[in-house]
Each structure stands twice: as structure tokens, then as C-alpha cells.
Amino acid sequence: MTQWTLSGFGDEIDPDPVVQLAVLAALGARHLELRSAWEVNVVDLDAGQLDRIAALLAERGMAVSAIASPIGKVDITDDPAGERVRLKSAIAAAHRLECRYIRLFSFYRAPGISAEEIRDEVLRRMREWATVAEREGVTLVHENEKEIYGDTPDRVRDLVESVGSPALRVAWDNANFVQVGVRPFTDGYAMLRPHLEYLQVKDAVAATGAVVPAGHGDGELRETLTALRDDGYTGFASLEPHLALQSATGGFSGPAEFGRAARAFAALTESIGVETR
């Protein structure tokens, strides 16, 4: 049976990492995607806080699947020095928590500015970050967030292939594609599968953009998951439900809604013969 490694955004459950880990473990996950703890963003956690998280993980036999950083979730005209600092912090967290992946984004732009107008600067900064990642032995996974440069499949492919680094890969998000008018599997899967290395799990309704549990929207989750199974995908599947709150900086579900999202995803994976662990 095909096996994928289950993870989830712990701060969608509760600000306290003790609660985050307890709920994830109860749902069968042995990994945490770390975006924040104690209401402190992962790139702002100090060494002592990272040590506390490392100890909590070790006590429970758990690990971190990815550092869910906000890097690149800023306007392209912002001072690039700030993102360099955040990348340095994310890499330090990844090393301390023995994690390979760092999630990031490819910049917002002002109203009236086209994606083509910011392309060269986006690629320049991404190349710089990828060079640092190669040196540090981590892999950057780009999430297709709406309204950034890489929000559609063609621009995600352009980004990854133009940078051309093994340290820059794709974190695939079906719901975010739906929210920019894309049919994820139909319009993007074949194009991006060669670069897809990390799966973030949520779904959305095309008519409203509302986020819903996996398989309950228009994100073509069953088709996507079946194709991943058939292609031999064996990586992470990270729950990011956004069922109670969604904003530009993230989302929240709470334990009950996070559990509902986990059960919906489990129903899908079980129906196609994929085991999550």
C-alpha cells in the first residue's frame, strides 16, 4: 500500500504547541508543520523557544515536516533585507528542529501592477534564496498563494524552472488554485508534477472561494491524490484546514474543526488505497 506521511499546521489547532502535538498525535500524525507557537511566528522564535519545541517533540517521538515561514508574503517593493533576515531565521529553525523543508512565497504587487512587471525581480530574489538554501542543505517549497507572482500553474512553473535550483520545489495547494480560478488537477497537475515535493491539504468552493474540508469543494482532490498515488508520491501531506478563519497571514480551525478536516482527508486517502502515518 502507498504510504504518505501525515502532518499539519499546529497553530490551526491552538497557540500552545503542547495542545498542537496532542491533537496531531490523536489524529495519527507524527509530524508538525510549524508556523507559530505561543502566538509567535516561527521566524521570530528565539533559541530558547526552539529548544522548548525540540524537547516537546522528542518527548513525544514526533518531528517537524516543514518550517511554514511567511517569507515572500510581502510586497515586491519592500526592502529585500527584511526577507533575508527572515530566511536566516527560518534556516536556523530548520537546523535546530532537524527539518529539511522551508515554505515560502513569491511576493505581492500593488494594484495596477502586472505579474510580468515584477517577474525579473521575483526571479532575482528567488535565485538568491535558493543559492543560500543549497549552501545550507535545506529545500525551499513555494506555495501557490493567491495574488502573489506564483499563484497560477504557469507562473509557478516559470518560477521554479527559471530559477533552476534543486533547492526550490513546489508545495502544492489545491484550495489556493481554486481561489484564483484554476481547476487544480485539470489545469496544473501535469505541468507541475515534476517539481511537486510537498502537499498541503485543503479544498475550496469555486463560486465563493470558501475553504472546506478535502473532497467537499471544487479542488479536484480525488483526482489529484489518485494521480499522486499512481506517480509514486511518498512525501508529506500536511493539513491546513482554515475552517474557522482565513486571512492573508494564515488561518485557524480549532481542535474540533481540525479533526473534521483530518477525517475528510482520511476518507479520501482510504478510498484510493493510500495509508497516512
Rank of each mutant, 00 (worst) to 15 (best):
V160K: 10
V205W: 08
G259L: 08
R222I: 12
G251S: 09
L228D: 03
M191L: 15
D218S: 07
E145I: 05
A256D: 13
Y189K: 11
V182L: 05
D231E: 05
E143H: 06
A256W: 12
A266V: 04
D151Q: 12
N174A: 15
D154C: 00
P255T: 12
H142K: 02
A266L: 14
E143W: 10
D158V: 01
A248G: 14
D187A: 05
L243N: 06
S247C: 14
L159K: 11
S165G: 10
A266R: 15
A237S: 09
S253D: 01
G209M: 02
F177A: 10
G217Y: 11
H216N: 10
L159S: 06
A261M: 08
G232F: 07
F258P: 01
E257Y: 14
A256R: 14
S238Y: 00
L159E: 07
P194L: 10
N176C: 00
V182N: 02
L245G: 08
A261D: 06
G235F: 01
G164R: 02
F252V: 13
F258Y: 13
Q200A: 08
T208Q: 09
I272N: 04
G219V: 06
G209T: 08
L225Y: 13
E220M: 01
P184G: 04
T186V: 00
V163R: 10
T152E: 01
V163L: 04
V182D: 00
T269L: 04
G164L: 04
H142F: 10
G150Y: 05
T226F: 12
R193T: 04
H142W: 04
K146S: 12
V163S: 05
D203P: 05
G254Q: 09
P255F: 07
G232V: 03
Y149F: 15
T269V: 13
Y198E: 05
V163I: 09
L221R: 04
F252C: 03
K202C: 01
E147G: 06
L199V: 08
T234E: 07
D203I: 03
R263C: 02
D218M: 03
H242N: 11
D173C: 08
H195Q: 13
L225M: 09
M191V: 13
E257H: 13
D151F: 14
R183F: 05
V160D: 01
K202M: 07
E240P: 01
V211C: 12
A171W: 14
H142L: 15
A237T: 11
L225V: 06
D173W: 11
L243S: 04
R263Q: 12
A248M: 08
R263S: 10
K202D: 02
Y189H: 12
D154I: 00
P153R: 03
G215P: 02
R169E: 00
T224F: 06
A167Y: 06
L199A: 04
T186G: 02
Q246G: 12
D187G: 09
L228M: 09
V201Y: 03
L239D: 00
E270D: 14
T208W: 11
W172A: 07
W172R: 08
